[in-house]
Design a protein around this nucleic acid. Sequence first.
DNA 1: CTTAATTACTTAACATGTGAATTAAATCAG
DNA 2: CTGATTTAATTCACATGTTAAGTAATTAAG
Lengths: 145, 145
Amino acid sequence: MAEAPRYDDSLTIALLRAREAVTSQFRNHVAAGGLTLPQWRVIRALAGGTELDTTTLAHRCVILAPSLTRIIKHLEGRGLIEKVPARDKRQRVVRLTADGEAMFTEMWVVSKAKYAAIEDAFGTEEMRDLVATLNRLRAVLEDKS
Amino acid sequence: MAEAPRYDDSLTIALLRAREAVTSQFRNHVAAGGLTLPQWRVIRALAGGTELDTTTLAHRCVILAPSLTRIIKHLEGRGLIEKVPARDKRQRVVRLTADGEAMFTEMWVVSKAKYAAIEDAFGTEEMRDLVATLNRLRAVLEDKS
DNA sequence: CTTAATTACTTAACATGTGAATTAAATCAG
DNA sequence: CTGATTTAATTCACATGTTAAGTAATTAAG
């Protein structure tokens, strides 16, 4: 009979749960603005007049290309982002519209406060350490490949 | 003009990337067995003759109920899990079939080795600390609610 | 015992995750 | 300059994430 593996101690499960715990702190807020969390990540990445192509945007927001195609279409339809002509005509470069910047500015106030509250509850130094540890884990795994 | 927020230092992004880095170590392996990662989590949770209702299973595997409904239907159709009569007729209690146990046993060998390799590359103690930290983060956030 | 409230799960609708195949544009070899 | 290769996005097909609504069974209130 196969041993019944511990599961609560699993790194995979711990990461899933932690991610859910953190993102759920923001989900209601961005939903009140009619956005999903992936959509909000895109808005945030473009804030402040930043112009980005799809590949860079996908990487920064941790969204796969097919999903990003749909999200861009959606946000463009809502008038929150717009295309920018690019030298390389294969690329789709986008930026926030004035409405998009306004949406970001309005949401960012509360979003930043929520992030600060998490930092406050968990510990500023502990949080910085955790992010560093997570990035180191990623670096180690990417080297293995 | 809104300040352009740092993004690589974001806890949310770090968690997303770390989760992706870890799960991607297993995705190809379970895909070779015709399974997705959520499906594999279900199989694993039921390994060793464990019988579980949908709610408990959903919690342990970090899968939402509607997704689990579909996954159970899928795995049952493949003959890897089966229903168990329950006193409470609202509940759906399931367990692995003989085929399901065989599938788990076969996949678990490699899966366990891959997990050990991660532990080896990242550090046993560091990994235990990381899991503990992630669980503490979750506890802190759940208290805030 | 009967009905209201609760619980466990399912269904529905839409958004995203994921891998494979496609299309269009840029780059490269000859 | 031409054809082969590579690159950037998109499209397709299917699985899961997410919320809200719906159904059936249990429990609780009277």
